[in-house]
Design a protein around this nucleic acid. Sequence first.
DNA 1: GTCGTTGCTGGTAGCGCTGTCAACGTTCCT
DNA 2: AGGAACGTTGACAGCGCTACCAGCAACGAC
Lengths: 366, 366
Amino acid sequence: MGRKRTKSGKIRLAEVAELAGVSPITASRFFRNPEALSVAKRTRVDSAARELGYVPNLAARALASQRTEVIGVLIPSLTNNVFSDVLRGIYHASEDSRYSIQLSNTRYSILQEEKLLRIFLAQKPAGLIVTGIDQTTESRAMLEAADCPIVQIMEIGPNPVDMMIGFSHFDAARAALDHLFGQGHRKIGFVGARMDPRVQRRLDGYQAAMKDAGLFDPRLIVATATPTSVTLGGALFTDLLAKAPDLDAVFCANDDLALGVLFECRRREIAIPEQIAIIGFNDLEFMASAVPTLTSVRTNRYEMGRTAATMLIDAIEGRRPERPVLDLGFKVMERQSSSLRRSDSRPALSGTGPANKMVALPSSHD
Amino acid sequence: MGRKRTKSGKIRLAEVAELAGVSPITASRFFRNPEALSVAKRTRVDSAARELGYVPNLAARALASQRTEVIGVLIPSLTNNVFSDVLRGIYHASEDSRYSIQLSNTRYSILQEEKLLRIFLAQKPAGLIVTGIDQTTESRAMLEAADCPIVQIMEIGPNPVDMMIGFSHFDAARAALDHLFGQGHRKIGFVGARMDPRVQRRLDGYQAAMKDAGLFDPRLIVATATPTSVTLGGALFTDLLAKAPDLDAVFCANDDLALGVLFECRRREIAIPEQIAIIGFNDLEFMASAVPTLTSVRTNRYEMGRTAATMLIDAIEGRRPERPVLDLGFKVMERQSSSLRRSDSRPALSGTGPANKMVALPSSHD
DNA sequence: GTCGTTGCTGGTAGCGCTGTCAACGTTCCT
DNA sequence: AGGAACGTTGACAGCGCTACCAGCAACGAC
């Protein structure tokens, strides 16, 4: 009777409270902290809400409480399937929570990232997931001043803003090289595209390994800022071959490039691994079913996303993780494309990571 | 001096208005409809906002205006790279707009879709993008009752809820089959995974084509509900070969499966296309650089996402499209994997689509 | 029996913004 | 010149919810 509806006919908290015979604030508490109510009122509010089909108005809640239940995610690309795996993990972990994901694409620009960060922060997100450790000074300052938990993903390094989850791309690249050295390869090329900070660190790892082995030769490196693709892998490999015809192995900065190299070898009738060995990076699904099967450095992308979101939500709700920096490690998945001599009983080269299946081998972050 | 800040120190519209020497409501208008202001005030507010680094509070705006600037997107999967292309298009089109994307994953469940739809609708989204045309009756009713524009994507069919953009999977499959028939193939197998409604319609198209040609044989069909992968392609092809050893071509419901079939053929030393022809679906990037290059049905996924978001935003802002249903068509990209006889001057088989590069060939939607 | 303590509940006062409508000045028409 | 029409501006009153604090009952300690 006296119940007045909003124009749009939506049910408000006040209606629920009235039907339940409690004050609006009590009804409000029911949705945020049911334990604070007596059992009697709790059930009354519950059934009133059900009966009316009440759905809270998030905008009003956000305005009144001065905070949102939004987790902001800043990633550099939607194209790259590395990020789609990470995202899948993030969405998965957030699905059963009250938090919703707000995604923004920095397009590999730290300036764009800074701009987006400013917008995100102004909306007082519950938490933030940002990619990598190479923010602008200004972004870094904003992140540090932010009053919400933050997780940096994709890699680990010194001075986390807050939490951090990833692995050492530098060490992973070194492990790839060590694997190739172990197979007797010496003239090892590097093929890289996009060259974002993480690919750059893989290149750094490659260079360090080659230098340490006294095998470094700049002609063995082909890198471009062009976005990656299978076709590009073939093209870059062609360039590499022109510069270094006596090549005996290729470290590809990602698996798409590796597949492109595989096809290009097939086109040129180069035998793999007899003439040239191939190793990729990320271990996408197709690597294991290519012919020959392709060696790759496995990274835990889905796990990274899922764990990042879980850690973040825990932190938002006051459950801070025991250790704020998590190294998820990597693992060299040795397959036909790099196995000249069958590796006998030597375990796969691994970085640190969950104890279940990885050999502990701490990556150095200095 | 007299300027009072909110506790958190955030700049409010009132501060901007004060600095600009106008009333808050005028400042408000500047952000929503600058043309309504005189040039003098416009520049004053603009510089005041810049100087203070003002960012509007979206929650307050949403609460006061009774609407949000959120576009809800319901897709069945984040894994499938078909959807990541669509999403890229959607995000791209929304980036320069005031609208933000809220993504939810139905996991191929129309019940889950219904649940998510209910939540979305309660927050009064500015618009909605939903996948496909197979909603539950309840979902359908909610969509029709929603007071925001809606775009259905990925396929076209009768009775759009509002707008619709996609192509006919049935016709696309028929076109693939027609291409194979044209190359002289008769024992054509079907390999499909996931079997969502759109893959199902591709299977329907395959069946119709085979029946019309008097070549239908249920043993030629291998389909599973398992999510797709390259490895699965090889496994399904193995099954198919066991059931129909005299196969001369395979229509794969997507490109991952096609790549798996390619590798499996290589493993079995089956010559492509001499012994078995392969055609995929979607024309992912790698199809053109495989060895042999793989024929596929090109679909305009990025374009679909971009156009859907653009149409939706236009509709939200009152610019309804001339035609609410858009057929983006498809195109059979003939490559080595299906070219027994070099196709001379015959144009590629196409569905309807943008005039620029596709041969108009309307798909029937009945 | 009094006092504090705890647990639960409600009143009040906004959160920051925009819808509505009225008021103003200017221009243009008759 | 008077008035209508338009463009521009501002005052006011919320949007639906929650933070904050006060109040009240019930209970235990002394």
